[in-house]
Design a protein around this nucleic acid. Sequence first.
DNA 1: GTCCCGGCAG
DNA 2: CTGCCGGGAC
Length: 311
Amino acid sequence: MTEESIESTLPADLTAVQDALIDWYESDHRSYPWRETTDPYAILVSEVMSQQTQLDRVVSAWEDFLDEWPTVESLAAAQRGDVVSFWTAHSLGYNNRAKYLHEAAKQVRDDYDGEFPETPTELQDLMGVGPYTANAVASFAFNTGDAVVDTNVKRVLYRAFSVPDDDSVFKTAANTLLADGRSRVWNNAIMELGGVACGKTPRCEEAGCPWRQWCDAYESGDFTAPDVPTQPIFAGSRRQFRGRVIRTLAEYEQLTLDELGPRIRVDYGGKFGREWLYELVSDLESDGLVDITNENRSTELESVHVCLKRN
DNA sequence: GTCCCGGCAG
DNA sequence: CTGCCGGGAC
């Protein structure tokens, strides 16, 4: 779809659409502590935490994290294992993101002289920071971001203005709609709309959706949303056992495979014995989350020790 | 079972 | 472009 046809998809009076949403957001919205700061470090922490975790669960973890590592310098100086332990202890999932956050802090210290980059392009150089997070941090910390495009934004644009389900088109449409020079309030507002008024089950009236007069879905009654890939079953998955390994290692200095195994699965042994566990922890080592040592230089898996990555 | 403010590695 | 990555709440 060309840019001209995107503009014809959007309402003619963009200013009215923008003002309506911004007014709606500013008059009332959910209160989150990271919306009260412009510290890019604190905002990055909140964005990484909320990539796949519900906001209500992020609040206390975010507060504890900043209590532990108040500044980007303090996080950069931390041991990776401590950051990963924190992540697991707070049930934040995806331990790789703890590693990314720690690495990003070190990048700010080493590559940016301790000063956070302020443009989306530079922010994307940071580990774990992709297009969404770069624009979110740039917007909320510096008000210099482009439009964020997450599943909320896609759903809203798809329903309200019949923007086709195509990432590059979503991006163009979102940026066309972005209120110039107001990315901070705008990106907050459009995601708030997707979270509060235009979720999977729409709540147009209850939330007082400000876009009802322009909304295609509201007019047609068809609230179909773009397909979101369904996640594979978690119970019994590889991910679950990885998580258990990290959670267990957070409690001990180091463990042998046979000490670790029974704490990971009750049926440790046989088909799911040392070889199985060694393969699992080897991947965790490749991910930079654990260290594997074999002090006797033995070829036997019996003498293998595992611990959280020190640094 | 489904949802939740993505990003990385191959 | 595809597969992978945790876990709690409902």
